[in-house]
Amino acid sequence: MFVETRKTVTGREYWDSKNKKVIVVPHGQKPDFEVVDNPKSMKYNEDGLNPGVAIVDETIPNLDEMDAEQLFAYAKENNIEVPGNMKKADTIRDHIKEEQANAIEG
């Protein structure tokens, strides 16, 4: 499968997913292979997800980068009750992670 990855001064570059290399087609020439227009097709096959491709959900925030105020706001948005005696970011973060793990298990 070949997918166009970018246009350069010298021509167009295509990713050859079978041979795992870039093919350059100079300007004025047409590729001698079939080009797939939808790059998402590289991530999926007929059975669903291709196990060789990792899908990353960038909407999940990194709790380790949040301060206490941000953690309180995150907990409130996600209906996680934080006891009033928790003030330190590390303690709040651990509590949120524990509540999320319990929700997944439960």
Rank of each mutant, 00 (worst) to 15 (best):
F2L: 10
F2M: 10
V3L: 11
E4H: 12
E4D: 12
R6L: 12
R6D: 13
K7M: 05
K7W: 05
K7Q: 05
V9A: 12
V9M: 08
T10Y: 07
G11V: 06
G11M: 06
R12P: 03
R12S: 09
E13C: 11
E13H: 07
Y14C: 08
W15V: 14
W15M: 14
S17T: 15
S17I: 07
K18T: 03
K18N: 02
N19L: 15
K20P: 08
K20H: 13
K21I: 06
V22Q: 14
I23E: 11
V24H: 07
V25D: 11
V25L: 10
V25K: 08
V25M: 09
P26M: 05
H27A: 09
G28Y: 04
G28T: 04
G28M: 10
G28S: 08
Q29M: 12
K30N: 12
K30Q: 12
D32H: 14
E34L: 03
V35T: 04
V36L: 00
D37T: 06
D37W: 00
N38I: 05
P39A: 06
P39S: 06
P39C: 06
K40E: 01
S41T: 01
S41L: 15
K43Q: 03
Y44Q: 03
Y44V: 02
Y44W: 02
N45K: 01
D47K: 01
D47E: 11
G48D: 04
L49A: 03
L49W: 00
P51D: 09
P51E: 09
G52R: 01
G52P: 03
V53S: 02
V53Q: 00
A54P: 11
I55P: 02
D57L: 13
I60K: 09
N62L: 08
N62G: 04
N62K: 04
N62F: 10
N62D: 15
L63H: 15
L63A: 14
L63N: 10
E65T: 14
E65K: 03
E65R: 04
E65F: 10
M66L: 14
D67W: 05
D67T: 05
A68P: 01
A68Y: 04
E69A: 04
Q70A: 15
Q70D: 15
F72K: 01
F72T: 02
F72P: 02
Y74H: 15
Y74M: 13
Y74A: 13
K76P: 01
K76F: 07
K76D: 13
K76V: 04
E77A: 13
E77H: 11
E77F: 08
E77R: 13
N78D: 15
N78A: 14
N79M: 14
N79I: 07
E81W: 06
V82Y: 11
V82C: 14
V82M: 13
P83I: 14
P83R: 14
G84S: 15
N85G: 05
M86W: 08
M86S: 04
M86G: 04
K87C: 00
K87A: 02
K88L: 03
K88N: 02
D90S: 09
D90K: 07
T91R: 05
I92M: 05
I92L: 01
D94W: 00
D94S: 11
I96H: 13
I96P: 14
K97N: 08
K97M: 08
K97C: 02
E98V: 00
E99W: 01
E99D: 08
E99R: 13
A101F: 00
A101E: 00
N102E: 07
N102A: 09
N102L: 09
A103V: 08
A103T: 09
I104K: 09
E105N: 07
G106F: 13
